[in-house]
């Protein structure tokens, strides 16, 4: 069965990031034979003076295909892991949802969207988690990370929010690849323009440095833009990182 695991608020200004803890957790799911983990997505939440956050106010989420018997050991392990590995002064939260048991996915998606727009409370998060029967627990400090952890699952479920953790390396900078070759990479599902045009398999793209994909339409998408029309150049080049900050 497919599950979503999301964590938030595990770091401080000097520590390793929440993304690294999510990576370790996703790897451990596989090492322990519980299932197969997907890529990790980073979801930006509201930056507001009334929202306490230790470092960035972004949450991390991954999905995994696991055996049903693995669910409770996995949750228990993740809880212990966060308590041991989260940084001093952080307020970690953990959420785990089983996709097929989600009673009202739209309500969870809406919670994620609202967490990007308005100040939510821990009570808001616990009330929704209880209603939807989603695991949601605090693991240190004020436990304020439960809001972002739950929102992270909603935003991942929306299929249209967040950047994938980790850089994408396909050839050297300025090398040219076809879309079909790019999509052969395990972490790229499609190549699209910022305006939503999905490139055809035979179209060619000039590669940039330190590329990243974003979550769009439930897929890991490499975004491209017109290359500028230099004579002999290919029509598309990958978007610079600074254009991806809106995701």
């Amino acid at each position: 069965m497919k599950i979503f695991v999301s964590i938030d608020d595990t770091d401080n200004i000097e520590s390793r990031g929440t993304g690294e803890l999510a990576s370790i957790l996703a790897d451990d799911v596989e090492k322990k034979g519980w299932g197969i983990s997907s890529y990790i997505t980073r979801h930006q939440l509201l930056v507001h003076p009334d929202v306490p956050y230790t470092s960035h106010n972004s949450s991390m989420c991954f999905s995994a295909d696991v055996d049903e018997r693995s669910l409770m050991p996995l949750i228990s392990y993740a809880a212990d892991f966060l308590e041991k590995e989260s940084a001093e002064g952080s307020d970690p939260g953990l959420s785990v949802a089983v996709a097929e048991r989600l009673k009202d996915p739209e309500a969870l998606i809406e919670f994620g969207r609202r967490a990007k727009q308005v100040v939510l409370t821990q009570k808001d998060a616990y009330d929704l988690a209880q209603k939807l029967e989603i695991h949601l627990t605090p693991h240190g400090g004020t436990g304020h990370g439960v809001i972002g952890a739950l929102a992270g699952i909603g935003l991942r479920l929306s299929g249209n929010d967040g950047r994938l953790k980790g850089g994408l390396k396909i050839g050297a900078e300025n090398s040219i690849f076809s879309v079909s070759d790019i999509c052969a990479h395990p972490h790229v599902d499609a190549v699209s323009s910022m305006e939503g045009y999905t490139l055809e398999p035979e179209e060619r793209v000039r590669m940039g440095d330190k590329m990243k994909t974003v979550l769009m339409g439930g897929k890991s998408v490499l975004l491209v833009m017109p290359s500028g029309g230099e004579p002999g150049d290919v029509p598309w080049r990958t978007c610079p990182r600074q254009l991806l900050k809106i995701f």
């Binding site: 200004i13 990031g17 980073r42 930056v47 507001h48 960035h56 972004s58 610079p240 990182r241 991806l244």
Partner: peptide
């Protein structure tokens, strides 16, 4: 430098990529 997933600028040496910047509105 901040952790990779929090980089937003293409130039790696940028206040936008620094671990000591705190985003405001």
């Amino acid at each position: 430098p901040d952790v990779e997933e929090e980089f937003v600028a293409d130039d790696p040496v940028s206040c936008y990529n620094c671990r000591y910047r705190r985003w405001s509105t």
